[in-house]
Simulated assay, not measured.
Amino acid sequence: MLGLMINEIEQKEIEYLLKREMEELLLDLSDSRIDHIVKRAMEERYQILYNLFRRFVSEKESLKYIPPKRKHK
């Protein structure tokens, strides 16, 4: 386990970067031109980012970014 000491400004910046990256992934996941194998990797990345995001924000805020359900084909 690792520890991290950051100030409030750095915390807000990390939150912003995580939100932006997750929103970008959600947008790309809705693109039908992207292969399902690539989308699976993107879903895994989203899950990692979401778990990290949950450590920085309240439960209410994290609910807005709950990972989408997988669609099996």
Rank of each mutant, 00 (worst) to 15 (best):
R45A: 11
E44T: 07
L27N: 08
E23A: 13
I37Q: 15
L49P: 02
L26Q: 06
E21T: 14
R40S: 13
V38C: 11
E21A: 07
E24Q: 08
L26T: 06
A41C: 12
D35R: 00
E44H: 10
D31K: 13
E21R: 11
E44L: 03
E43D: 15
M22K: 07
D35P: 00
A41E: 03
R40V: 04
D35L: 04
K39S: 01
E44P: 02
E24R: 15
K19N: 11
V38I: 12
E21G: 01
I34H: 09
Q47S: 06
E21S: 06
I37K: 01
I48C: 07
E23T: 05
R20K: 12
M42K: 14
E23W: 00
R33W: 06
I48L: 09
M42G: 02
S32W: 14
M42R: 14
R33C: 06
H36P: 05
L26P: 02
R33S: 12
M22Q: 05
I34M: 11
L18P: 08
S32T: 10
R45L: 12
E44K: 15
L18T: 01
S32N: 08
D28W: 00
I48D: 13
R45T: 09
M42I: 05
S32R: 09
L26E: 14
A41R: 14
L49K: 15
S30Q: 07
Q47D: 12
Y46Q: 08
D35T: 01
I37P: 09
R40M: 08
S32H: 13
D28R: 07
E24C: 00
S30I: 10
L26K: 04
L29A: 03
Q47V: 07
V38L: 04
K39E: 01
Q47C: 01
Y46T: 02
L29V: 00
L29D: 03
D35S: 03
L29G: 01
V38T: 11
R40I: 13
K39M: 09
S32F: 09
E21D: 14
K39D: 01
H36A: 10
R40F: 15
I34W: 04
L49Y: 14
D31A: 04
R20M: 10
L18G: 01
L49D: 10
I34T: 06
L25H: 03
L29E: 02
M22F: 06
K39L: 04
L18M: 04
S30M: 11
E43V: 09
L25V: 02
Y46W: 01
L29S: 05
E24L: 11
I48Y: 12
E43M: 03
E23N: 14
E23P: 08
L49V: 13
Q47W: 15
L29Y: 04
L26D: 15
L26F: 00
L27C: 02
I34A: 14
L26N: 13
M42V: 08
D31N: 06
R20G: 05
L27E: 09
Y46H: 09
E23H: 05
M42P: 13
I34R: 03
E21Y: 12
K19F: 13
E24W: 15
L27H: 09
I34K: 08
L49A: 10
I37L: 14
I48M: 13
L29K: 04
R45E: 15
A41K: 15
E43K: 00
A41F: 06
H36Y: 05
D31H: 11
Y46M: 09
S30D: 11
E24S: 00
S32G: 10
I48K: 06
Q47N: 01
R20C: 07
K39F: 03
L25T: 00
